[in-house]
Design a protein around this nucleic acid. Sequence first.
RNA 1: AGAGAGAUGGCUGAGUGGUUGAAAGCGGCGGUCUUGAAAACCGUUGUAGCCUUACGGUUACCGGGGGUUCGAAUCCCUCUCUCUCUGCCA
Length: 447
Amino acid sequence: MSFPTCPAFIGNVLIGNQKKYIMLDIKLIRENPDFVIEKLKLRNEDTGIIEKIQEIDKKRLQVVQKAEALKEMRNKVSNEIGVMKKNKQNADDKIAEMKNVSDEIKTLDDKLRDFETEIEDYLYYIPALPADGIPFGKSAEENVEVMVFGSKANFNFKVKDHIELSKKLDILDFERGAKISGSGFPLYKGKGAILERALINYMLDTHTSKGYCEVMTPILVNRASMEAAEKVPKFEEDMYHINLDDLFAIPTAEVPIINIHRDEILKAEDLPLKYCGFTTCFRREAGSYGKDTKGFLRVHQFNKVELINFTTPETSYEEMEKMLKDACAILEGLGIYYRVIELCTGDIGFSASKCYDIEVWSYAEDKWLEASSVSNCTDFQSRRAKIRYKKILDTGKTKTELVHILNGSGLATSRLMVAMLEANQTAEGSIIVPEVLRKYTGFDVIE
RNA sequence: AGAGAGAUGGCUGAGUGGUUGAAAGCGGCGGUCUUGAAAACCGUUGUAGCCUUACGGUUACCGGGGGUUCGAAUCCCUCUCUCUCUGCCA
């Protein structure tokens, strides 16, 4: 999904959110602010927010120390009171004294909570720091093409777009989908529905054969899961939401799959932990205006196979390359002309440190369409979702450390369907089914 | 959906206001014994902050949040989840 760019820091305007969202490690800001500022500059972020955080953090620490010293006294004296009472001694003086101390502690704790909320509210607007070596750039125009697979086909007839093709073959019905639910809710029919099912099965079989554990997850999730996956409240208006039960329709399987291990400590020997899962995905696409809205190009409901990898910090970038290959393998199997681009610092998603996009060629639109996004979110999501693992140190001791989380679409069927229908059309307007799908469809051609 | 019961360390499970961060057992780790292993015995064994060069000290955590109290695993409120019975249902 696309993330809006981080809003600039403007005084207290952004403050006041009650929720707690720790995204960037406060320790990193505490210990190495220059590094953080340097990295944020690459993302064209206002870095004034860092100094503000440091300032509050200092005040916070003073309050913490004062409160803890008082608590130490309270604990000691309270124990003494207990002993005195046991010995039938009068402890009224001490109790009165401790009452005052307790009140003071309460005041300090309130203050502390305010500081922490304030810090977290600032942190909430700081995106993940870009990884080393990411191409610098301000916008999507400065993304870098990494590789191209295949070559553009030459058609000796005028190519039809996927809408025209599917209408003629009666495999997709956007009008009736709109009647049932609204625009952007496609209806698959006959061989169209079978082709969709074939694609999903082909993708799942391919991934599971490479060691991904297939999961079938809930597609309505609670608020806590959405928060852990960094989707809410920042993108709340992009979600379908069921008020009565406070449940969200997932925008991607990334949400439920990441939440499989929320608040868990994983075993080091289980990493990398790889999942693939098919789900239907729902996106309100609020504010996407009229851009790319034809047919399948932008829909509210679509099907997607998602790849998720929980791994160690040492191996996450290596694993990312593997995940990219796994996603590419699907397109290569289908014989689709595609390219991989590496997103520049100005275009990477909010929670990612590095991101590749896979784009498929649309002959009708005469342009590349984004079909997949493979991201390394490092510890950004795991910090909020509290997903850690026991790291075994050289000394033999263990240390609990945040895992790195990678996600990649492998892939969404809608854009893929656009590219596939267009690329496999014949002069007569029928569709040749790619070889790898035939064992799933049971037919070779749609005509 | 209604009625009842419950949620404690890696696991089982004690603990109902005062040195309880938490008995006991299991498991894990280290050791003694053994040619080796088992058994037995002895010791050790949670996480996260903060202070300290270190030794160490200290705070918080018994499902989540809030409250009462000098003091809460223990009392009160609230939320979530689990189990049993009843109802409904693909």
